[in-house]
Computed example of a mutant assay.
Amino acid sequence: MKLLVYSAQDFEVPFLKKANRERHKTTFIKEALDTNTAIKAMGFDAISIFSADDASLIVLEKLRDLGVKYITLRSAGYNNIQVKSAKRLGFKVANAPDYSPNAIAEHAVALLLAANRKIHVADRQVRQYNFRQEALLGFDLVGKTMGIIGTGRIGSIMSRIMHGFGCKIIANDIHMDDNLIAEYGVEYVDLPQLYKQADIISLHVPLTAATHHMVDGKAFGKMKPNVFLLNTARGAVVDTKALINALRDKKLGFYAADVYEKEKGLFFKDNSPNGIKDETLIALLSFPNVLLTPHQAYVTKEALTNIAEITFYNLDCWEQGEPCANELGFETLVL
């Protein structure tokens, strides 16, 4: 099978080549998939895309006309592809679920520790030979109430880790996990109660119609003063304009995230030569109590190995006419 890999990052290509084991004729390009770059898929049977690629209806129609039949995503999330439209047009589509929930949960914890103990501030200070501590005040995690929204594979690992810090865990999900309740004393509450009680809130939900902007102005109004909010889910789970208002009104202690609502065209590239024009992101980054990383939670050796293996597993299944466990069906509902 001939495969074109869009948005191929230099650091992930070796993992993909190793997983392929020369079974499929693979071409890597750095360009993201969009209406202009779809033409590059001419002559390919399959494409592989990442979360920054655009697989909207107009792009899918172009890919179909070019003869592409298979789309394998190198991500668990698939809000960037119109799955129902893809299936209607005859594509087979699969994602890479469960590639490394530990990587995402551990990055959320890293963000929390860095934000709380001002690691990023301390690093800047000592590089200027400033060894004072006035700007470095944090708090102990033990005894704090941790609110986890979404207790799937990533959220459950986050629960386990934060239980190890001695936190009280409260959670919200449409399904309660009996193992989390039994092993870590997780208490399931409704969202208003979680907002009211939690000292720290961590988001671990997919981006769907139901979760889009679920953390909005009303939600911020219900949160405890000085709450820490962590987002390693999707940027659009949080209403960025409401977030900026909450930061301006000093309703938040800290916002630490690995995602941003309008990542497309900004993330996964070096914008330092010319800067950026996104006024909302510029405003967000102006707050000293905001820590943003560039969607790097998945960048671990283990995660990249698993993503690559799953990518070619999906292709192997399709090529051999076998059922693919990761294939997304008509019932999938995305934003």
Rank of each mutant, 00 (worst) to 15 (best):
G143T: 04
I200F: 06
L16S: 03
D53P: 00
E331S: 14
A108K: 00
G147H: 06
L180R: 07
W318F: 15
L266G: 03
F312P: 06
C167Y: 07
N172R: 06
P288T: 12
A96N: 02
G138I: 08
I201H: 10
H107V: 03
F50C: 01
T145H: 03
L63Y: 07
N116W: 08
A135K: 15
F220I: 13
A41W: 00
K18G: 03
I29D: 07
N80S: 08
N80V: 00
K224N: 06
K17E: 15
H107W: 02
F220W: 10
V290D: 12
F44S: 07
E302R: 08
N226D: 15
R117I: 05
L180M: 09
N314I: 04
K144W: 02
Y313L: 13
I29F: 07
E279H: 06
N314Y: 04
V109W: 06
A135M: 13
F15T: 01
L141R: 05
E261K: 02
V205P: 04
K277A: 08
S156F: 10
E331Q: 10
E183C: 13
Q82H: 11
F268A: 13
T37I: 08
D123W: 12
C167R: 05
S7Q: 03
D53Q: 07
L335F: 09
D53W: 00
L33H: 06
R248E: 15
N226M: 09
F312R: 02
F15A: 09
Q296D: 10
K264R: 14
D53C: 01
S48K: 00
I170R: 10
T311F: 01
S75L: 00
A257F: 08
T151N: 06
K301Y: 09
L266P: 01
D190P: 04
A19L: 09
T293S: 14
F28K: 08
M146L: 06
F11N: 14
V238D: 08
V68E: 03
G221P: 06
A246E: 12
R23E: 13
K277S: 14
P97A: 05
P14W: 04
A246F: 06
D54E: 12
V59R: 05
G143D: 10
N226F: 04
K269R: 15
V83H: 05
F11L: 14
F165E: 00
E187R: 13
V83M: 07
F228T: 11
V121Q: 14
F91C: 11
V186I: 10
P225K: 12
A103G: 11
A110K: 02
I149C: 02
P225A: 10
K222I: 00
I161C: 03
H204P: 05
G77D: 09
E331A: 12
I119W: 13
K262I: 01
D249H: 11
L89H: 04
A198P: 02
H295P: 04
Q125T: 04
D140K: 09
R127P: 06
